[in-house]
């Protein structure tokens, strides 16, 4: 059962830490809803910075909803790399009492946690909420290429082309699931890919 797989992180949901002196929200796509549902009070919002990566189809509307919160700052990222880079900068200058929150796809949360850990933040102290699809980030154990947004089982490695079985084994350090060649013993015997992570 996937839920009991012990290397898989759990995402308990966003809960505001009221005594924090500063809140940083890293949000992706439907993850915006995790913050608007939380509806923080005005006092908390004056101490909040929001980094948002919009995703189709609802990105524009979610951006409007986030703007309506009236946080101290709202920054919309052009892509994931830009968001992670800005987040790293923010964390680098962050003081004691800063709390980080991440919501969005599992691959997004994983990469936010990698940045957080690099900044010396205990990943377990980061509030996380999974919103949106169940697409997986997958590291090919053979050539080490990371495939983004994997929705099928098995999947093709974009690096070496092998057909990979997507395991539940998850590395927080890499922010990725493990992909292992599914037909190594009998090349050519791989089953057809089926939608598995939607």
């Amino acid at each position: 059962m996937a839920a009991a797989f012990l290397s898989r992180p759990v995402y308990p949901g966003l809960a505001l830490v009221p005594q924090a002196r500063r809140h940083i929200f890293a949000l992706e796509g439907a993850g915006a809803g995790a913050l608007t549902d939380l509806a923080p009070d005005a006092g908390a919002l004056t101490r909040s910075d929001i980094l948002y990566l919009p995703r189709d189809p609802d990105g524009a509307a979610q951006a409007v909803a986030l703007a309506a919160l009236g946080a101290a700052s709202l920054w919309q990222a052009p892509d994931l790399a830009a968001l992670l880079s800005r987040l790293a900068g923010l964390l680098d200058g962050a003081r004691m009492g800063t709390r980080l929150y991440a919501a969005g796809s599992e691959g997004f949360i994983g990469q936010v946690l990698v940045v957080a850990e690099a900044a010396g933040i205990d990943p377990l102290s980061v509030a996380t909420e999974h919103r949106g699809n169940r697409a997986r980030r997958v590291q090919c154990v053979h050539c080490k290429t990371v495939a983004e947004e994997v929705t099928t089982q098995p999947c093709a490695c974009p690096g070496c082309g092998l057909t990979l079985f997507v395991r539940d084994h998850y590395s927080r350090r890499l922010g990725a699931f493990q992909g292992v060649c599914i037909d190594a013993e009998e090349p050519g015997s791989a089953p057809a890919a089926e939608e598995a992570f939607r």
Binding site: S7, Q139, V141, R167, D168, R172, R173, L174, Q178
Partner: peptide
Amino acid sequence: WSLDFDVGMSFHEWHAP
């Protein structure tokens, strides 16, 4: 088992499979 994948994991995490 892959060290590159498992490095940094806790006891229960690397034994998960």
